[in-house]
Design a protein around this nucleic acid. Structure first.
Lengths: 207, 207
DNA sequence: ATGCAGCGGTGCAATTTTGCAGTTGTGTAA
DNA sequence: TTACACAACTGCAAAATTGCACCGCTGCAT
């Protein structure tokens, strides 16, 4: 009942959260430039070296960004041959959610992003990684799909999936730009929802 | 100023204390036989295996017994050629203090020993280890000493030091027996002091 | 009596944490 | 400009923690 995670995994999660919390809290108090990785590590009660076992940059720690990944469940459910726009949309949302947004209720990320715009760039960099990840999935699917064989004769699978992810990802980019001005969770969802609707309306009109 | 111990050493001390506290607390609540090493580990938030990295038996954990050891400082100050009785006495007290008694103020050992006499045996076993340790030091000193060369011609150095440690350790054994009935720290010190005086009075009379 | 489950305890390999030395880039004082 | 401190970050080896399989013993139900 309470044994979903091994002790090892539980502690790893705790340490991650401790570092992210310390980083965000200290940043809110002093600003990102006046916080050292050493101070963050001390707050989280781990060594300075361990800090970099969890985050590759200080900003990642402040924002609580993990390397994006896709659950096997989602990978298996993914099917290039049907509803690609929907599927890629959901996949993007899922990845962002499970890695960046995962345990967001208790995160100070929103406030940090709001108050220190310099960090926003990092968030978009993170989104690039998400897109890359999803692109790889789509590329692989297309390469193996009979349905896409025709198109794949005139364009490389990489380029096809790049375009698809760009289109499917448009609502998220739209939402991220939007929410930069009022970055609460609700705002993000609202913006995303709006952007999705907008995309569906626009698409038929431009072809 | 606050950096006497490395992070590693600080954490090791904390884990040791967490395990000992958990063991003593659970024992006081349920009795030593109704406490499992697993429960203790869970309380201390470490794995069951780690428990045995710190204590070789459950009883050691309950009593907070470390493997006795001698600081280098004391080793260097030790000199077989002068005041052996005094020196061995102090050495014994020091070892017991720095390992068993070390951080005793916050320990529940006394109460545990008081309420569960079954554990007392373990304490004496621990004292045997202390004696062994001190014996080794004395043996080494005697072997290298010119002053002891004469006696060492008729007896093995091991036997000589055994006898010396037995004599010098008498007051501590005396005190441990005494304090079994009213085992508070003050009592232990008082009993030890009395026993020391007694020894000094008896010695001249019997030779 | 005969299994059989529970607990103490050990060996070992995989994972994590730590300390330390070093590289790079950046600001700042002489 | 040069020099120097300081902070981000990496590589690596030693130490600590964990998970797991396993042994031996003991009590207890069948």
């Amino acid at each position: 009942m309470s044994q979903l995670l091994s002790l090892r995994d539980r502690k790893r999660t705790e340490t991650w959260a401790a570092l992210h919390n310390a980083a965000a809290r200290l940043t809110l108090e002093n600003g990102p430039d006046r916080v050292t990785t050493e101070a963050i590590s001390a707050q989280a009660n781990v060594s300075a070296r361990t800090f970099f076992n969890y985050f590759s940059t200080k900003e990642d720690a402040i924002l609580g960004l993990q390397d994006p990944s896709i659950d096997d469940t989602w990978l298996e459910a993914f099917d290039v041959d049907a509803n690609l726009l929907d599927q890629v949309s959901r996949l993007l949302v899922h990845v962002v959610h499970s890695t960046e947004g995962g345990a967001d209720g208790d995160s100070l990320r929103m406030e940090v992003v709001q108050r220190f715009p310099q960090l926003r760039q990092r968030r978009f960099g993170y989104f690039l990684k998400v897109e890359q990840l999803v692109r790889d999935v789509v590329t692989e699917g297309i390469t193996a799909s009979a349905k896409w064989a025709d198109v794949a004769q005139h364009h490389r699978a990489e380029d096809i999936s790049r375009m698809i992810v760009l289109i499917a990802g448009a609502p998220m980019r739209y939402a991220m730009q939007e929410s930069a001005h009022a970055p609460t969770l609700d705002n993000q969802f609202a913006a995303l929802s709006t952007a999705n609707a907008l995309l569906r309306e626009v698409l038929p009109e431009i072809q």
